[in-house]
Amino acid sequence: MPEMSPAELRARLAAALPDALVDVAPLAMTPPPAHGPQPGMFHPPDPFVHPDHLVAAALFVRDTLGYALLSDIAVVDYLYAGCFELVYRFYHPSGGPGIVLRVRVPRDAPQVPSLTPHWPAANFHEREAFDLFGVEFVGHPYLRRIYMWDEFEGFPMRKDFPRQGDKYLGGDE
């Protein structure tokens, strides 16, 4: 069963696609509290990929490293830091722990190239991310809302989406 640590994956990616990797600073998730202990910073060990090189990096992971199961694409909204983080998770068909690629995009222009034309497994993951977070996957063949109805305004999983109120239920106010 193949095992690849985040550091090894970073080294392999850096050798194959020198421009793809980006360095990111540790991220504060919440504003510092007025009193009490400061919360820690969020700094995962996985490699961060520049959005422009995401497709190349994912195909490198699939075709060269053999991690052919795209398992999950999760979006996390870091409202305080002003970015979305996309967490791509891949597994090897012969087993072993998975590997993770991360992409950060700014909240005001969340655009990521779509994996779906190259890798159909990404289809519903990307539609879900578009529906709930408003991340636009450029090049997706059928980027429509998947859970909410088409007329729905706003992206309900964003941290600044209103949690209460009937704005979206009562028609034209």
Partner: peptide, 25 residues
């Protein structure tokens, strides 16, 4: 997939649901 910001509630809670992905093909 869980992300914690150090509080008692998950900052992000994501379910990778098998039925959902199995519908793709």
């Amino acid at each position: 997939y869980l992300v914690s910001d150090g509080s008692g509630k998950p900052y992000r809670y994501k379910v990778r649901a098998p039925s959902f992905i199995n519908l793709t093909p």
